[in-house]
Design a protein around this nucleic acid. Structure first.
Lengths: 335, 335
DNA sequence: CTGAAAGCGCTTACAG
DNA sequence: CTGAAAGCGCTTACAG
């Protein structure tokens, strides 16, 4: 019932291998033979079986992208960048959402290995080192996206979180805020660490005393921003500004402030890493550190391709610059 | 170099087929044999090759989900529902973003057929009928998600767009708005049509004359909402409220209103289909028709599975009810 | 409960 | 420029 390469070969009066040559555009085929083969393919509605192809050739032309949060616009933008670049090279991308869960990540990796993907782009979770070593042992090529992993020597494409956080904090200080709180992501994740470091660096440079109560470690989630803001504002000495580790946290912060009838930025300023999608349409308009998410995905695929082709053997780290998008917040979120 | 089923068989002192039985948990294997096989698998770090498995068994335990916009939270939520349900059944989901582009959709379908997916969940674009007929001819199982396609008899899982739009318009009318504009999605897409129909139905029932200038057809994108709002407000007779076809359009509407220094809801009310992610944290807070996106993905997979198992042969249409989430908007987006 | 043989649909060397 | 043979790593009947 299924149309195979042999059916096409028979119809075109050639051998299967010649059909294969036409499909894959390798080897020599005469113009006339090629025409006949193409005609047969189209007449029979032939669809090559990639399982058979991959089984023999040991290449599937498929790569995977593991993102840690599919609902986060940063990651969907990374995915678009990766997909566009991959498509241009004739590769398919399998998009997998690990939800920051190392076990889910490990399950996905196993599934992907069974599927014989050629390589993997990984936005690692807080506990990926063991999985990555396993990949290394198996000789599977991968590139880390957005986050470095301690103790793992591998290609990384990420943005300069520390510099971004440093600039943002500097901006807040220059604007006149002295008491700045930081609600960030897990310190087990490099972006969580680097953003905290940038914040601390800027305060230190200005000789501002670090208030430990102003530093909160959470998850990269709105619920975390919400809970930690409530915690933060229970303190006697309230901060004048809150800098958040990503836009999801910022969303939770805004919600908490709203419930506490605190106005942004009149009562307290808020700024974040990553833009809140559609935020330009609403007020207040948060100043944000903008990451080149699309580029990160794109460069990630480029790196992986070069590695797959053997064009590159040394480990590389791409650290892309970020942009501070300063907005004079003008709204009030008071009830 | 690669560890195959024969290596495991040799190590365990059994035949390959016995190893296969252990892995797939079918056929009879004695306790002791199974133990030895599992030991060998673990010792050799054996990873089964799904290409070979699928080639012979003609089943890949893989399904695909085509979404039309990966940056739209509605679709990522559908994807999560689909993924969770699929995982529970031991299926993998390939997530593909068609970007509302019929050609991209067609390319993806071809790639997926080559990959021998067992079935496809499709959020169809404005021009999918031909691709769907092709799938039908090839005997490929699929389920339509979110949108029906005219002239195509296939399983559909969608929410009740018309009822939702009807209720929303009724609510606006009951609140006192008489001049209500509608900025929706393409009429070539069923959700675009149904939402317009619901709006018109509510106006008609109240005996309100339809103002053609108040009805705008666009894309399900912010840029569309933005441009059409500007167009809409050029009219002499300005509407008192704008009802949008989805949250992305609403975002563009808000941006345009902001630029025109119009206050929401004091100068003009805005409401939409789908919630804007994180909107609760900002003002104004839009009243919205909430769709059971997660359920849609989940039920889509269930339907597909029943069809794949041959448990179901008749075409079914699931129309899920929606919820009107009424918020008393309290903010002002004036500059 | 276990296994030998055949074959899924391709591509890889190797010939010519 | 074209093809016959072998094999990728599994599973499917069929035996026993």
């Amino acid at each position: 019932m299924t149309v195979t390469i042999h059916d096409v070969a028979k119809q075109a009066g050639v051998s299967a291998i010649t059909v294969s040559r036409v499909i894959n555009q390798n080897g020599y085929v005469s113009r006339e033979t090629e025409r006949r083969v193409r005609e047969a393919i189209s007449e029979l509605n032939y669809i090559p079986n990639n399982l058979a192809k991959g089984l023999k050739s040991r290449k599937t032309s498929t790569i995977a992208l593991l993102v840690t949060d599919i609902t986060n616009a940063f990651w969907t933008t990374v995915a678009r960048g990766a997909e566009d670049e991959a498509e241009a090279s004739g590769l398919s991308v399998l998009l997998c959402n690990t939800d920051e869960d190392p076990q889910k990540e490990n399950r996905y990796i196993t599934t992907l290995l069974k599927q014989q993907v050629d390589g993997i782009l990984i936005g690692p979770t807080a506990d990926s080192a063991a999985h990555l070593e396993r990949l290394h042992e198996l000789g599977v090529q991968y590139v880390l996206i957005d986050r470095a992993v301690e103790g793992i020597q591998a290609d990384v494409v990420r943005s300069d979180s520390q510099a971004g956080a440093y600039q943002m904090t500097q901006h807040l200080l220059a604007t006149g805020y002295q008491k700045i709180a930081f609600i960030g992501g897990p310190l087990a994740i490099s972006t969580g660490r680097d953003r905290l470091l940038g914040y601390q660096q800027a305060l230190k440079e200005k000789g501002i005393e670090m208030n430990p109560a102003y530093i909160k470690e959470g998850l990269f989630k709105a619920s975390s921003g919400y809970a930690l803001t409530k915690e933060l504002l229970c303190e006697n000495d309230r901060p004048q500004a809150i800098f958040t580790g990503n836009h999801l946290i910022a969303t939770g912060v805004m919600q908490a402030l709203h419930e506490m009838s605190l106005c942004v930025p009149d009562d307290i300023a808020v700024c974040s890493f990553d833009d809140i999608p559609g935020v330009n349409s609403f007020s207040p308009f948060l100043t944000a550190v903008i990451q080149p998410a699309y580029e990160i995905g794109k460069i990630g695929v480029q790196l992986l391709l070069k590695r797959l082709s053997g064009e590159r053997t040394e480990v590389e780290e791409f650290v892309l610059p970020v942009n501070l998008l300063i907005r004079s917040s003008c709204g009030c979120n008071r009830k």
